[in-house]
Amino acid sequence: MSPTMSLTLKVWRQANPTSAGEFRTYKVHSISPDQSFLEMLDVLNEQLIINGEEPVAFDHDCREGICGMCSLMINGQAHGPERKTTTCQLHMRKFKDGDTIVIEPWRAKPFPVLRDLVVDRSAFDRIMTKGGYVTVNTGNAPDGNAILIPKENADKAFEAATCIGCGACVAACKNASAMLFVSAKVSQLALLPQGQPERTQRVQGMVAQMDSEGFGGCTNTNECEAACPVGISVENIARLNREYIRATVVGLT
């Protein structure tokens, strides 16, 4: 059994979307290095409840790195120090006994804080409604093998499609830009034959919605790619740009 750790946590507390928040400092002890970061927060919350305080609210669900619900800026890094890892898959062995850890919510105008570390990411859903789909009603589909798709394209589309919509790209970008998120969906469908008919409207619609939500612009710092827990490449942003240029040239509006 590896030795346990004691940690100091500096956590953002905010009662509701309109109230002012503040950092509060807590101490946790007997943390095992095999614990996940969220399990460490579970320990903190059990402690707070027993002491008659309100537990820290944070979003989480699958705890296996795929649902995209967990977030957290940990010591100034989205999902913490480990690359290609969500907070739920971050283990305490990445920290040292005696460390102080600063825990903040995602910060972006389109991601308002709801409580403590929970933010509202519904802006992402609204962007999706503006073109993140193929218009095909149930029952209309031809045979799955009717259209051949080169493996290379299928693989690239898959890689773009693995985006979990967690918002780390926005959180890590100095401009709070959602370009990586949007580019992932635009790329997936631009790479597949099924996405071609709506190619033009899709990129225009999604970019317009992204802008109206108040996300910042991309300045190609690549921080999003580094923070992305599933490794979505900025190559997709270049493709998004190409799609946008193309849509501007050939589009009717």
Partner: peptide, 22 residues
């Protein structure tokens, strides 16, 4: 069998062989 067709049409990137088949 219909499910696979429907999902492919939606742009679900299933694994494919080099020839482009599922």
């Amino acid at each position: 069998v219909n499910i696979i067709d429907q999902c492919v049409a939606q742009g679900v990137p299933f694994a494919r062989e080099y020839g482009g088949l599922l």
